[in-house]
């Protein structure tokens, strides 16, 4: 489903060139869960950003169902994110002044959906993320765990087939991390492909994880 070929990413400033990713090759199948371990600055987030078509690589290709998303214009990349990708960030970024329901509207209002379809999608996502009871509350009053579940609900509300999680448990306590892992299991059961970057040891003991990879200094081991 996702095929990454010879992917490189460098950042250049006036004096130095930093090679964040060095010749990455990776395949992720449909319904597969892959965890990428690595320390801070190893290139995990950069790799996920490229897979989500948020960032362009310096060279290489990312084929999603045989289409190279690297060559996408902003319009195509946005459509790809809108229809196929759910992105879960480590910082729980939500529009704080809005209710949870209204936060989930953001990915849906750009789709050609009726009001009823929108409400159904929100209801389903909130049920799956186990936060339906907070639907009409403002997210600024939420705890860390609730915010993370809200982020998950927003990431899956448009029913994407690729879920990308960038250090999802970095700001959660153990209890909330376990709840999050339960949710990932459910998403796998729904047939999603999931790519997680983390340095949380908790993932290593989970049997629903199909593959664990390690990234160091921009190279995948």
């Amino acid at each position: 489903m996702i095929k990454i070929q010879n992917l490189c990413k460098s950042f250049t400033n006036s004096t130095d060139t930093f090679h964040a990713l060095k010749n990455i090759n990776l395949s992720v199948q449909k319904n597969e869960v892959v965890v990428i371990y690595g320390e801070s600055g190893s290139g995990k987030s950069t790799l996920l950003s490229i897979i989500a078509a948020i960032m362009k690589p310096s060279s290489g290709a990312v084929l999603v169902d045989e289409e190279n998303i690297v060559s996408f214009s902003d319009i195509h990349a946005s459509n790809y994110r809108k229809n196929r990708v759910g992105f879960i960030t480590q910082s729980f970024h939500l529009m704080d002044e809005l209710t949870l329901h209204d936060n989930l509207l953001a990915p849906l209002v750009i789709q050609n959906l009726t009001k009823i379809q929108i409400e159904e999608s929100i209801e389903n996502a909130l049920t799956l993320a186990n936060i339906l009871h907070k639907k009409e509350q403002r997210v600024k009053t939420f705890s860390g765990g609730e915010r993370q579940r809200s982020i998950i609900a927003r990431a899956i509300v448009n029913n994407p087939d690729i879920i990308i999680c960038d250090e999802p448990t970095a700001n959660l306590d153990l209890a909330n991390s376990l709840k999050f892992i339960e949710m990932l299991k459910r998403l796998k059961e729904e047939g999603k492909s999931i790519i997680i970057s983390s340095h949380d040891e908790l993932f290593k003991s989970q049997n629903f994880i199909d593959r664990i990879l390690h990234i160091k200094d921009g190279s995948l081991g």
Binding site: I54, D74, I75, S78, N79, Y80, R81, K82, N83, V85, F87, T89, H93, L94, M95, D96, E97, A106, P107, I110, R154, N158
Partner: peptide
């Protein structure tokens, strides 16, 4: 807040033009 809002919209699949 506005910059964050723009970033969230972009992450959700909004085009620059939108």
């Amino acid at each position: 807040v506005d910059a964050k809002e723009v970033a969230i919209l972009r992450l959700s699949g909004w085009k620059i033009k939108e």
